[in-house]
């Protein structure tokens, strides 16, 4: 008899709270409850919605989940508190190389070895001069590594934060942002290689290289969307992560990373359907001083919009379930 035994001593109750709140609650599903519970809140600070725990009040009604508002509040709070995500991402990178002598320089070094090794090999295979081919391989591989890293770590963006999710009330956005920032940090370690290769081969994109920045923005937006979507899907279905890993492996060979898109000949018309390629190309083209076709841009932007929309829809619908999934 849970209902019968819930009469707290009268003396402990607050004297006379606003009638709109203190009265018996309307039956679940009653549309009127929404207005009443939000309207009669004189003591609540301006702008506070109570949709997320952490403020001065918190309200959650299973019959009126207000999912969209909650998801927006989560995104807003998480992005506003980017310093936390940044600190966590920074600790992640630091901890990964704890006790190692050259530390994160291993990231730079291993990428450099791969760029030089594959550059020399494929220049010979394709019978291209090294100084012409090396900048292409360097930029391609580094961008591909970045995309590949982000996609594979996206699968664990929420599972990895399990310990925090189940104990502390934080916006889920924070965990996703942490994953994205960590990967940006890791990728930034490869930038010197591009500069060294450019200097060695005597190529320089000039001011046109700045056109890579919009591409970078697209990539970051996509990373966030993918980290959120895959983070959620992989938390629920644990088989997705290995599938994603093998898809990315195939995508590496199917995308013009080591080979130039021109080599496809008349089949090259299908390339804009490959999001990994178009996203990579919006940055690679400007860096190598090559023109990027409108079609590639169009494809990259469309895929970004699609990824963001899918991810946002998923987040709105299933945000409340994440704590049960991880």
């Amino acid at each position: 008899m849970p209902g019968a035994a819930t009469a707290p001593p009268e003396g402990h109750l607050p004297p006379a709270p606003p009638a709109a709140q203190a009265g018996p609650l309307p039956p679940p599903g009653g549309r009127g409850a929404d207005g009443a519970s939000r309207g009669g809140a004189p003591a609540r600070p301006e702008g506070e919605t109570g949709l997320l725990a952490g403020g001065s009040f918190y309200e959650c009604d299973a019959s009126q989940p207000r999912r969209l508002e909650r998801a927006m509040a989560d995104l807003g709070t998480g992005l506003r508190r980017w310093r936390l995500a940044f600190a966590l991402a920074w600790l992640d990178i630091r901890n990964r190389y704890r006790g190692s002598v050259i530390g994160p320089l291993w990231l730079t070094l291993s990428t450099a070895i791969m760029v030089v090794g594959l550059g020399v090999l494929y220049a010979a295979l394709f019978k291209l001069p090294l100084v012409q081919f090396l900048p292409f391989v360097a930029v391609s591989l580094i961008l591909w590594n970045m995309i590949n890293q982000i996609v594979s770590e996206a699968c664990g963006s929420l599972i990895a934060a399990e310990g925090i999710i189940r104990q502390l009330t934080l916006p889920y956005t924070t965990h996703v942002l942490r994953c994205v920032l960590r990967n940006i940090g890791v990728a930034a370690h490869s930038l010197p290689i591009i500069l060294v290769v450019f200097a060695f081969c005597g190529t320089w994109p000039g001011l046109g290289g700045l056109m890579a920045l919009p591409g970078l923005l697209l990539l970051v937006l996509n990373s966030f969307a993918v980290a959120m979507l895959l983070g959620m899907v992989c938390a629920r279905f644990r088989d997705i992560a290995p599938i994603v890993a093998s898809v990315m492996q195939i995508a590496f060979f199917l995308s013009p990373v080591l080979w130039k898109p021109e080599l496809l000949g008349r089949h090259a018309v299908w390339l804009p359907l490959n999001p990994a390629y178009t996203l990579m190309e919006t940055m690679r083209g400007p860096l190598l001083g090559e023109p990027v076709s409108t079609l590639v841009w169009l494809s990259a932007v469309s895929f970004t919009v699609l990824a963001c929309a899918a991810s946002f829809a998923f987040f709105v619908r299933f945000r409340g379930r994440i704590a049960f999934w991880v």
Partner: peptide, 12 residues
Amino acid sequence: GIYEPVGGRLLV
């Protein structure tokens, strides 16, 4: 606020 109620209502 870690688990959202599956049924019913909570106000803190």
